[in-house]
Nucleic acid binder design. Structure first.
Length: 511
RNA sequence: GGUCCGUUCGUCUAGAGGCUAGGACGCCGGGUUUUCAUCCCGGUAACAGGGGUUCAAUUCCCCUACGGACUGCCA
């Protein structure tokens, strides 16, 4: 048993992190913080072939944007480093010796072609076993079948070789998973996994056992795709004689493709109609750009909230939860077992909820750069006021410019559908009356309340219909049919602009 | 092919032997509103199938079907 909760998120820098990975990181983080433990980030870069430049940076930036704070990692430091596997070679070299010495690992010299041939042969024989294991390793080129001297000679000669794990034959392994309960497997189903590749670097299986142990990881929380190799990992701990110090395991349900089947993958990119990456990603090789939640106008809090509810739910029915609340409520026992497809519609709803509840000045900080690009010389306080008026209509931060354009510029055209519905025979003269009415209001009294009072009084006095007057009025002001409270609009754009728009509307709108 | 994991409304989920199977998104209808949005009210819709166990199964067990993961000198 471990006295302190320590969990790690261990991505490999082979590209951008997709939302499934972010969720794994999030669950690790929530679990760690719930138990006042540590959350570490370990970069698993033992596959130099698949290393992608910028991916490491991307992973860290993504977690930062999400508000997931790292306690120990490359940038944060810590007492258990290095936190990058490529910098831990000596440690792995040291550890593999132990397994070599106690007979749980062995050298193998088979070429890729020979391995293919083995698989093919086994497949054709109709055998259910198609693996390099206790039954088949006797036919292969390794330190079980070769005289000791030949083994050393091969190694000396510089010939490529790997080190494999000698999986014991016919042993029942029962492993415990926090989410799934007990899983039982017979060791004969496992194969003699490569522990060290011919490039001298360990594989995931080996490095992760060594590191988790050395870094005193108490709980391994990772995706379900790792469940099949859990027995192997247990065997590895056993081979080291550390089964009693083994972390506890929890395998998270997968995030599935919303369209079609299968687990969500990096390659799904944005052809799914919604981003699969937290941040925008530019492929360094192809230059292709994949959309990110951030750039698409999502608030990080909304993004995280939505992700947390994929596979987990709090005890009550609450759906809108801050990171703090999630930490408080989080419980691995409430993570369920089946995979989750997620709905882009609900993601939008989450974002809208967060936009509505985020203070206007904060929202302004997010959108100001875009707004300034489109409408130069805007006043920050004005933007702040406008966003307060339109935010409940926004699903994405990027909706602002389209939702609020008429607060910044005179409408250039009028929605024909709305014109047809709202602009009647007698409308122009009515608009003229409104014009005259408003013209008489002094600048400083051109407020929401006062203008509303004046106009409504006029409508009532003349026994007119509210909709008949206000709808076309809205049309000349905004060019369309929807939008915030009409008198908020005119008090915002001011008297001069209001009069100008009425005049322009009377002149330009024709049925 | 083999091994493992899974299966409640279209989607995300609650449920841990006895419930009219609950909530959320979406959708539909109504209310509020000058409009759109928000908000409020209502409606739609699910226990994969078959066997057991039990007085009683969505819930426990088995089988089948379906889905998924894994099956690399990738993680």
């Amino acid at each position: 048993m471990h006295e302190k909760v320590r969990v790690r998120f261990a991505p490999s820098p082979t590209g951008p992190l997709h939302i499934g990975g972010v969720r794994t990181a999030l669950f690790n983080y929530l679990f760690a913080k719930k138990h006042k433990g540590d959350f570490l980030l370990r970069i698993e870069d033992t596959d130099q072939m698949r290393y992608v430049k910028g991916a490491e940076e991307y992973i860290m930036k993504s977690l930062e944007w999400c508000g997931i704070e790292i306690d120990e990692g490359i940038n944060e430091g810590g007492d258990f480093g290095p936190y990058k596997q490529s910098e831990r070679r000596d440690i792995y070299n040291e550890h593999i010796k132990k397994l070599l010495n106690n007979g749980s690992a062995y050298y193998a010299f088979d070429t890729p072609e020979e391995l293919d041939a083995l698989r093919k042969r086994l497949e054709e024989s109709g055998s259910s076993v198609r693996q390099y294991n206790a039954q088949t390793r006797g036919e292969m080129k390794n330190s079980f079948t070769m005289p000791e001297n030949d083994v050393f000679a091969e190694i000396e000669s510089g010939k490529p070789y790997v080190i494999r794990f000698a999986v014991p034959e016919n042993e029942t392994i029962t492993v415990k998973d926090i989410i799934r309960g007990e899983v039982t497997v017979n060791s004969s189903q496992l194969d003699d996994k490569v522990l060290f590749k011919s490039d001298g670097l360990p594989t995931y299986h080996f490095a992760n056992i060594v590191d988790d142990h050395l870094m005193k990881i108490s709980h391994v929380i990772r995706g379900e795709e790792w469940l099949p190799s859990l027995p192997l990992h247990v065997l590895l701990y056993r081979a080291f004689g550390r089964e009693d110090e083994m972390p506890e395991f929890a395998h998270l349900p997968l995030l599935l493709k919303p369209s079609g089947k299968g687990k969500l993958s990096k390659r799904d990119g944005d052809q799914l109609g919604f981003p699969v990456f937290p941040l925008e990603w530019k492929d360094p090789k192809t230059g292709d750009i994949s959309a990110g939640y951030k750039e698409s106008g999502y608030l990080p809090e909304a993004f995280i909230n939505m992700l947390a509810l994929l596979g987990w739910s709090p005890e009550d029915d609450k759906e809108i939860l801050s990171l703090e609340e999630m930490i408080k409520e989080f419980d691995l026992n409430r993570v369920h077992k089946s995979g989750a497809r997620f709905s882009p519609e609900k993601a939008l709803w989450f974002n809208q909820q967060y936009i509505i509840h985020t203070p206007n000045d904060e929202l302004t900080d997010y959108i100001l750069p875009e707004v300034e690009k489109k409408f130069p010389d805007v006043d920050v306080l004005y933007v702040e006021k406008v966003i307060g008026l339109v935010k409940e209509r926004m699903h994405l931060l990027t909706d602002f410019c389209s939702q609020a354009a008429f607060f910044f510029e005179t409408p250039k055209e009028y929605n024909p559908k709305v014109v047809k519905k709202r602009w009647k025979e007698d409308t122009p003269q009515m608009m003229q009356q409104i014009y005259d009415l408003l013209e008489d209001i002094p600048e400083q009294r051109f407020t929401t309340e006062h203008t509303e009072h004046i106009v409504k009084q006029f409508i009532e006095k003349n026994e007119l219909n509210f909709g008949k007057v206000l709808n076309p009025f809205r049309l000349v002001l905004t060019g369309t049919g929807g939008g915030p409270h009409l008198f908020d609009i005119i008090s915002s754009i001011g008297k001069e602009e209001t009069l100008l728009r009425i005049k322009k509307g009377i002149e330009e709108i024709k049925r």
